[in-house]
C-alpha cells in the first residue's frame, strides 16, 4: 500500500479516527492503538468550573499521531476562523478539520460558508481539511482555494448508511488533485473497503467504531478493510462485464 501524503506529511495509515461517542477514554485509547491510525480528530468545548479533571488529550499517547482539531459547533465562516485560531493555540497545530453545519438535525455542511472559510484560513496559514458535500464542483472550488484535502460525506454524520453518494464520490475522486477523504456515514468495514476500492485516499470513521459492541475489535476490522480496499485499488480491479459470463477455465480442450 502506498503512503498517503497530505500537505507534505506522510501517513502509513489511510484510516482517520474520530474520538467522539466512546463510552470511556480507555476504550477510545485502545481503539486508536488497535486501528493503527496516524490522524485523530479532536473537538473543543468551553470549560466549566466543574469539569476541570476531564483531560482527553492524555489518552492520545502516540506522539506520531497528527491531531486534527475540528470546528464543530460553528455556524458560519466567521465563527470557523475564530475556532481555528483557538485550536491553533490549544493544540499547537495549524491542521484543521473545517466543519460548518448550522442545522443540528441533519448536520449537513454549509457549502458557501465552508468555501469562504477555506479561502480565509488558507491565507492565514492553516492546513485545511474541509468536511463537505459530495459535490464535485464544490470540491474543485475547495481545491482551488487551497484545501489540503477534500472530505466529502458518504451519508449524514453518524447515520451508518454507507456510500449513498457513491456516483458523486467517483467523479470527485476522478477529478481531484488533492487527497479525497470519505468522511461521515461510513457504518461498516465493507463501506470503507468499497470507498477505498473506488480510489478514495482515506476514510474518516467515528461512530461505527465508537458505538460498536466491541470498539477495539471494530477498529481492527476497519484497519484491515481500509488496507484491503486500498490494496485492491492499487492492484487494479478487473473490468465489470455487461452481464455475460467470461470463463475462467478452458472449456474446450478437456473432453475434446
Amino acid at each position: 500500500m502506498s503512503k498517503l501524503v497530505i500537505a507534505g506529511r506522510e501517513f502509513n495509515s489511510r484510516l482517520f479516527l474520530g474520538t467522539g461517542k466512546f463510552s470511556s477514554n480507555d476504550l477510545m485509547k485502545d481503539s486508536i492503538v488497535a486501528s493503527e491510525t496516524e490522524m485523530v480528530t479532536v473537538a473543543m468545548k468551553r470549560i466549566s468550573l466543574g469539569d476541570a479533571n476531564d483531560d482527553m488529550l492524555k489518552h492520545i499517547v502516540d506522539k506520531n499521531i497528527q491531531l486534527l482539531p475540528n470546528t464543530s459547533g460553528v455556524r458560519d465562516a466567521k465563527e470557523a476562523v475564530f475556532a481555528a485560531k483557538m485550536s491553533r493555540e490549544a493544540f499547537g497545530t495549524n491542521w484543521l478539520k473545517l466543519e460548518i453545519h448550522p442545522d443540528p438535525r441533519y448536520l449537513l455542511p454549509d457549502s458557501i460558508e465552508t468555501l469562504k472559510a477555506t479561502e480565509e484560513l488558507v491565507k492565514l496559514g492553516f492546513v485545511v481539511l474541509p468536511y463537505c458535500q459530495a459535490d464535485p464542483v464544490l470540491c474543485k472550488r475547495l481545491e482551488e482555494a487551497g484545501a489540503a484535502t477534500v472530505m466529502p460525506l458518504a451519508a449524514p454524520i453518524g447515520s451508518n448508511k454507507g456510500l449513498r453518494t457513491e456516483d458523486f464520490l467517483k467523479i470527485i475522486i476522478e477529478q481531484s488533485n488533492v487527497p479525497v477523504v470519505v468522511d461521515a456515514g461510513i457504518g461498516a468495514p465493507s463501506h470503507a473497503a468499497a470507498a477505498m476500492e473506488l480510489g478514495a485516499d482515506a476514510c474518516l470513521v467515528n461512530t461505527a467504531i465508537a458505538v460498536a459492541g466491541d470498539p477495539v475489535r471494530m477498529a481492527v476490522a476497519f484497519r484491515d478493510a481500509v488496507k484491503c480496499g486500498r490494496e485492491a485499488y492499487e492492484a487494479g480491479l478487473g473490468a465489470v462485464t455487461a452481464g455475460e459470463a467470461v470463463a475462467s477455465s478452458p472449456l474446450t480442450s478437456f473432453l475434446g
Binding site: G20, M44, R46, N70, A90, G92
Partner: peptide, 27 residues
C-alpha cells in the same frame, strides 16, 4: 484569541470576561 506566548503577560482585571476552551472528544 490570545497567543500562548502572551498568556503570562496578559493581565486580568476585575470583571474581565475570559473565554476558555479545552480539548474534547469529537469526530
Amino acid at each position: 484569541v490570545i497567543p500562548r506566548d502572551e498568556w503570562a503577560s496578559t493581565k486580568l482585571a476585575d470583571g474581565t470576561e475570559v473565554m476558555m476552551i479545552r480539548a474534547a472528544c469529537g469526530g
